[in-house]
Simulated assay, not measured.
Amino acid sequence: MNINILMVVACALLSGVSADENRQERVPAKGFAVYEEKGSFQPFEFTRRAVGDGDVQIEILYAGICHSDLHHVRSEWGKEEYPMVPGHEIVGRVVGVGKDVTSFKVGDMAGVGCMVDSCSECPACVAHKEQYCKDVVLTYHSHDRFHGNELTQGGYSDRIVVAEKFAVKIPQGAHLEKVAPLLCAGITTYSPLRYAGVKKGDKVGVAGFGGLGHMAVQYAVALGAEVTVFDVSEEKRGAASELGAVRYVNVNKPSDFQGLDGSFDFIISTIPSGYDPAMYLKMLKMDGQMAIVGLPAFDKMPTISLASLIFQGNRKVFGSQIGGIRETQEMLDYSVENGIYPWVEMIEADAAAIDEAYRKVLDGAVKFRYVIDMKTMK
């Protein structure tokens, strides 16, 4: 046996790592990255970590564009590190599995959302709410504490390696090109609706009718609620009605608000820009609930006064961040079973096409989610 191989085996035995693990190679990947704050997308070649015993390697077929991707690319939520490959709405085909993987086999369809790892031990993880783990590893722009602290990169790429427990199964018969946004927009709105106990006959308000809002409408309607949509223009009135909303309020028309104070059981705010939360709080019934899931840029972050909370007593306001992996799987199964999907516009896997999609998202000109067809990447 070659002396170099003997040394590898000896070192592996001393460290508790098998020689096979030592010989594992990192996975080559390519995609699209920005290299600076508010920069344009450029082709980018990099590597993923090696496939471990409990990991799956996924060939990415579709990647959704989320408004939060724009916030990160533009450093609107704080300092970022570059180059950055965004994307946390990922659907693809399993092309490799570690020896301990039991839930997936090569050829299965799998999805990855906003998280790729957590500690598995803290109260949040034990409660299947991994999104609140203090050591959660996000799909991109996050240092992976469990794999050498390397910077994670997202789904605008051709492949990803993720722990089996953070991949979700795509149900049979799913419309794959529409599934990716469910892994963020879907779970972000499904989770607080379920947490709040929205039921048949409830009056629900959806503030903001974009990528998140149009999913909230569909879930609320499916649960039997009477839904009112709030948005800033007339352009989406027809779409709201088509998705089952019974009323559409243009927030720039004061007359549209007549008779709405104290009328809602539940309001979900998906608004990604500055607004007045107290305006919606007063529209809740006594004991009504308001969930806030939209997170604007830090320099446009809304506030709510203590007086608004005290004098609108017994109305409850809570924030919600995506959902745990178990609930994400539940949401995905429910969505496919009930035919609930985002409205998507497909774009090619091309840097210029992604740049143009970002411009349209910023201008509010997308209805309602862009999805990158990663199979078209050259």
Rank of each mutant, 00 (worst) to 15 (best):
S320F: 10
Q153I: 08
V17P: 11
A240R: 08
K129L: 13
K165M: 09
T189F: 03
I347C: 15
V366F: 14
E59Y: 10
F41Q: 09
I160R: 01
S335G: 11
D299P: 09
F298K: 08
V95C: 08
A124C: 11
H147M: 05
G155T: 06
G201W: 01
V112M: 13
L284Y: 02
V179L: 04
P272N: 01
F368R: 02
M377S: 03
D261S: 04
E81W: 09
I310L: 13
G154L: 11
K282A: 02
L295W: 08
V168D: 01
K253C: 09
L183A: 00
D117P: 00
P123S: 06
T152C: 01
G111Q: 09
E356D: 15
G173D: 01
G323E: 09
G259I: 04
K79T: 15
G274S: 15
G39T: 11
K360A: 12
A291E: 05
E330W: 05
T139H: 03
G339T: 10
Y219W: 14
F146K: 00
S18M: 09
F264Q: 04
N4D: 15
G211W: 03
Y190A: 11
V95P: 10
T139C: 03
L182E: 03
V91H: 06
T152R: 01
D20L: 02
Q321W: 15
L6H: 05
M279S: 11
S241T: 06
I354C: 13
M115S: 03
V293A: 02
K203L: 06
E345P: 13
H214I: 05
I310T: 04
G78V: 14
R359S: 13
C133I: 03
P296M: 01
I325W: 04
N338Q: 15
A351E: 05
G259V: 02
V34A: 12
N2P: 13
A351Y: 00
G148M: 00
G96W: 06
C184M: 08
